[in-house]
């Protein structure tokens, strides 16, 4: 083994070590939460997780309900919008898409503030959970619509034309040809908006009606008021594990292609 070769191997080693070092830093906050969530005076235990499925259960269920409703409404709005954006020719199309994806660039605190003020003074939505749901819908709309737009752009129009020329109605064509073929794009949109809504605490902090506390908001409130509790760590770890499992399932099923143009570009 001579010196030059040793140096190249060393450079390779350092490169990979660097990648893993950075990745370790990424997951350090999560690992810290995880390790503290197992901690109990005098040892290791799962007792903190009893809280997650005990007194935090309400918050988790609220989160699931809000996320589910927001994702569903979002999907119903995004599907036709994406179709209208990709399949038709008309002026200022790029501008319309930019206008619709603007929430992506709106700081969450500003979105939250503007919504809570309008809910208060114009819409009278402050006591309704629908105010929260719609805040989530508008915030994650770009994450839903962009993957669907990407998928539709990749789908040649010839399939739709073939279906229609074979005698299918427009409605049958959407359900039996278009939606299945852009399935991965739709799934990516659902995954992204779910992961974001499910972990959202900031807009929620502004607009959640009295008595409604989602799980991430509960984490925030507890960290603010009660300091560092092992039980809070357990809740935060649980939320991240659920999210990560959702991402992993998606990656296994569809790969990373349809996450382009979104958070992971």
């Amino acid at each position: 083994m001579n010196l030059a070769r040793l140096r190249r191997h060393l450079a390779d080693l350092i490169s990979h070590a660097y990648i893993w070092g950075c990745l370790l830093i990424f997951v350090t906050p999560f690992l810290a939460l995880l390790s503290y969530s197992f901690e109990k005076v005098g040892g290791v235990s799962l007792v903190n997780y009893e809280y997650v499925f005990g007194s935090f259960m309400d918050n988790l269920l609220t989160s699931v309900r809000v996320s589910g409703a927001a994702v569903l409404i979002n999907l119903l709005i995004s599907l036709p919008a994406a179709y209208g954006l990709v399949r038709y020719r008309y002026p200022a199309k790029g501008f319309i898409l930019s206008a619709l994806t603007l929430p992506l660039y709106t700081p969450a605190a500003v979105l939250g503030l503007s919504l809570v003020l309008t809910y208060n003074f114009t819409y009278k939505l402050t006591t309704s959970i629908w105010g929260l749901v719609f805040a989530m819908v508008v915030g994650t709309f770009p994450l839903m619509v962009v993957p669907i737009v990407v998928a539709l752009k990749d789908l040649p129009q010839v399939f739709e034309e073939a279906s229609l020329s074979l005698g299918a109605t427009r409605w049958q064509t959407y359900w039996r040809i278009v939606f299945p073929l852009i399935g991965p794009g739709i799934s990516a949109g659902i995954l992204l908006s779910f992961v974001i809504v499910f972990n959202e605490y900031l807009v929620t902090l502004f607009v959640s009606p009295p008595g409604v506390t989602t799980a991430p908001l509960r984490v925030f409130n507890l960290v603010r008021t009660a300091g560092l509790l092992n039980t809070t760590a357990a809740l935060a770890a649980t939320l991240q594990i659920i999210s990560f499992i959702a991402v992993l399932i998606f990656f296994r099923l569809f790969g990373t292609r349809y996450l382009k143009g979104t958070y992971l570009i």
Binding site: L23, F26, V27, T28, P29, F30, L31, A32, L33, Y36, V195, I196, N199, E200, Y201, L202, P216, V219, F220, V223, L228, T232, A233, A236, L239, Q240, S243, F244, V247, Y263, L264
Partner: peptide, 18 residues
């Protein structure tokens, strides 16, 4: 692995505190 930060700055800040 890089999706972890995507789950939110709250968890990162909370975890870093620990």
């Amino acid at each position: 692995i890089m999706v972890f930060p995507m789950f939110g700055a709250l968890y990162i800040a909370f975890g870093m505190r620990f």
